[in-house]
């Protein structure tokens, strides 16, 4: 906490390089010129997909890292947005598909995802700590079975296919380069928003509630409202990622929101690290790369064993994920620019 106070009230005028941090600038430069050096496969299936998964994991990091609420329902929330654009937008499954334009369907999907997220949050925050994982897992599993069994609303097992990304401003946004930049801009906005929000009054209040809900209640804060609002914000991020995911896959089915993918999001966030918003993206890149190239090592069949073991190793040796490893071994001098966050943001 003192760290933040220092960075805000300390030397008043910093130049923009210091404010952003050299790490951020180098990363941004690399990500901007990435399409020049990457093939279409690396651009979309690795780059774009990592950003999408990273955003969903970021919504989990926001809840877990700042709010102390580890949720397994983030994929479900993303799935709600995807289902909404499938139902209200266009699909070729001949069920629903009202053909609303993307600029209505996508915001509606994101909004509904956020509303459901707040609802899940309201259910989950009635209990504390480890219960949240259980309740959100129950919600995610129930949602999966419901989507699979119900044909009138979710079109059951096959789900919806033929979802098309919009063609706007003369660009078809599912083309590799536009899709990459679309994902990149969404991810950067979400990342910056979480980073900025974590130092806002709301963010600091949320972290204080995480550290001691009782004391915060005693000094007059509405603990439940703050937590539910955090869920709403996380829902916006996850919902945006859900829309991108639907455009990326071109389809949405119960398989996308089943328990495996839901747990995958948690794995991504934990592997990356929950202490800083960059963690989920690091985790997403690692997991997507493993997913893509592990097939050559262990075969497509045993991929889950590999990722599961890797996850176990990370949990055992470094509770803060790859970021924790980085903290331990990185050169000391550039500590502060990368560390512009409150300490002890772990769960």
């Amino acid at each position: 906490m003192s760290n933040v106070a220092f960075s805000e009230t300390g030397p008043a005028r910093k130049n923009w390089v210091e404010r952003l941090g050299i790490g951020h600038i180098l990363l941004a430069l690399f990500l901007l010129i990435y399409p020049l050096i990457a093939s279409d496969f690396f651009l979309t299936t690795i780059g774009g997909y990592s950003m999408v998964l990273g955003m969903i994991a970021l919504s989990l990091m926001l809840l877990a890292g700042y709010g102390g609420m580890v949720s397994l329902a983030q994929m479900t929330i993303a799935g709600i947005a995807a289902y909404v654009i499938a139902i209200f937008g266009e699909n070729n499954s001949n069920v629903h598909g009202f053909g609303w334009p993307w600029w209505i369907a996508a915001p509606l999907g994101i909004f509904l995802a956020a509303v459901f997220s707040a609802l899940f949050g309201w259910i989950a925050v009635r209990t504390e700590g480890i219960y949240t994982i259980m309740i959100t897992l129950a919600i995610a599993t129930a949602a999966f079975y419901f989507a699979q069994q119900n044909y009138t609303l979710f079109n059951g097992f096959p789900g919806y296919s033929g979802l098309r990304a919009p063609e706007a401003f003369g660009v078809y946004w599912r083309e590799p380069v536009p899709f990459y930049y679309l994902c990149l801009s969404c991810a950067v906005i979400a990342y910056a928003a979480v980073l900025y929000g974590s130092r806002s009054t709301f963010g600091l209040t949320l972290q204080a509630i995480r550290d001691n809900p009782r004391r915060m209640r005693a000094i007059g804060y509405d603990v439940t409202a703050h937590k539910v609002f955090a869920w709403f914000l996380a829902g916006i991020i996850a919902g945006t990622a859900g829309v991108l995911l639907a455009w990326f896959n071109g389809r949405i089915s119960p398989g996308t929101i089943s328990v495996g993918p839901a747990i995958n999001i948690l794995i991504i966030a934990i592997i990356g690290g929950l202490r800083h918003p960059i963690g989920p993206f690091v985790g997403a890149v690692v997991v997507v790369l493993m997913q893509t190239f592990a097939i050559d090592i262990v075969g497509a069949e045993r991929f889950n064993t590999l990722i599961g073991l890797f996850f176990l190793v990370i949990v055992f040796i470094s509770p803060d994920g790859i970021l924790g490893l980085w903290d331990r071994f990185k050169p000391a001098p550039d500590r502060d620019s990368w560390h512009s966050r409150p300490d002890g943001t772990g769960v």
């Binding site: 480890i130 794995i267 889950n304 064993t305 599961g308 176990l312 949990v315 509770p319 769960v347």
Partner: peptide, 23 residues
Amino acid sequence: GDDLRQTLVTIGISIVAADLMLA
């Protein structure tokens, strides 16, 4: 004494176990 890590470990175990049982 570390609830969250214990839970995470059980998640990891369940993934590996499901995959090995499938094998």
